[in-house]
Design a protein around this nucleic acid. Sequence first.
RNA 1: GUGCUCGUAGCUCAACGGCAGAGCGCUGGUUUGUGGCACCAGAGGUUGCGGGUUCGAAACCCGUCGAGCACCCCA
Length: 437
Amino acid sequence: MSTKPQNVKGMRDLLPQAMMLRQHIIGTLREVFERYGFEPLQTPTLEHAETLEGKLGDEERLIYRFEDHGGRKLAMRYDQTVPLARVVAQYQSQLQLPWRRYAVGASYRGERTQRGRYREFYQADVDIVGSSSPIADAEIIAVLTDALTALGFDNFVTLLSHRQILGGIARVSGLDEAAAGGVYRAIDKLDKIGPDGVRTELMNSGVSADACDRILHLVSLSGDSESVLNALSTALAGDERAQAAIINLREIIVAATALGVPSNRYAVAPRLARGLSYYTGMVCEAVVESPPMGSLLGGGRYDDLIGLFAERSLPTVGIAFGLDRLHDVMEELGMGPRGAMADVYVTIFNPESMAANLALAHQLRAAGFKVEHTLDASERLGKQLKTADQRGIAFAVVQGPDEQAAGEVVVRDLKSGNQHRFKSAELATGLRGIMQA
RNA sequence: GUGCUCGUAGCUCAACGGCAGAGCGCUGGUUUGUGGCACCAGAGGUUGCGGGUUCGAAACCCGUCGAGCACCCCA
């Protein structure tokens, strides 16, 4: 056991600069979610192990599992979707459907860590429980588009597809359902390994050369969503489930457009597979061109999961924002707030003026400003100004004997060096004016 | 869980078997009513950790912890 302080692998401390960005992200997302009427939900970090088992396919080996002191078999939350299903089943009589809920919290997966991939990671989930309408899918697309835009992203695209489109491609290519899993995974890598790479993988899983060509042609379709959907519709003419999926995507896009989603913010991408086994309908994920960072969010429609807990079918659609990834990308792109928490730094001119200067700090806080000041009444003024500037605080307040005698106070803009004089009583008003300028 | 790469001052890196260094940053001073520029001085290291090879290890070998890359998968 090492005595050296260290955090657990894959789990991070968020120091103030990082935490301020995190809170900015969460605050922005909440504001958007609530604009659509989504209501907050919190569930515990720990669940009964059996609640999580049997829902996630072969990824269950990543679940953190242990026994508590009473011998209960417990597991750490793996995502926020299964807990949602549990809550819906448990409180059915108290919930009015359809129910829009959001949840912000950490989930845990025992994965090998990598950039943008942590063992403790934070997600903000939004889901609409109890509606199979394409309008619900569209609302999710609208929420995520609004949210990423509100955060300042101007380079993202939401990739859209449908489980039954990929299914249809597999069926018309003559693949049986059992072989399809590997085929989906190969197709999903198109962007990463290119058409030739996908072809190699498909051939290795026993797909005929002829089928490879048809699959590659279909999943490589690009262009505006209507022409992609038309091409898919023609190619999958014999497959009823795929046709239904295409109609469903069209309805979703019509509604999303009406809800204000611009056409350059989404793209129909037949290659999109998504691993989580519980998706049944529309699937989506949002990506940015740079920096390289997987998907910023992902999700889709899962109509059967909640039914595993509740005794009735509860169609649900939702997504999860990856807060750590949003954070890492925004940091690299220089997005979000910078600098210190405080708006203004009040200096103490000398020990004799300490009381008068601290009273200014009090006055500003009462007026709603975030105010910091030195704790050393004999600290040199120059040092205080340097400290304030280094901490990223934009303004400093100075009041020495001359100003005090005149009943005035000086506000210094630490970026430009410009100074403004105000009557002491008008400090808050004056500062507000400068800050808005 | 598989296969790799990398851990040296607060940060970015150098030294690559022979005295652990530079730039930036930090502290103090030139400057006791105003920070940023300049100059001067200073502090700061068990070279991630543990073991081994060697006259000698930051360097080579083994292990371990951490970060990252490709798988796998996903936020």
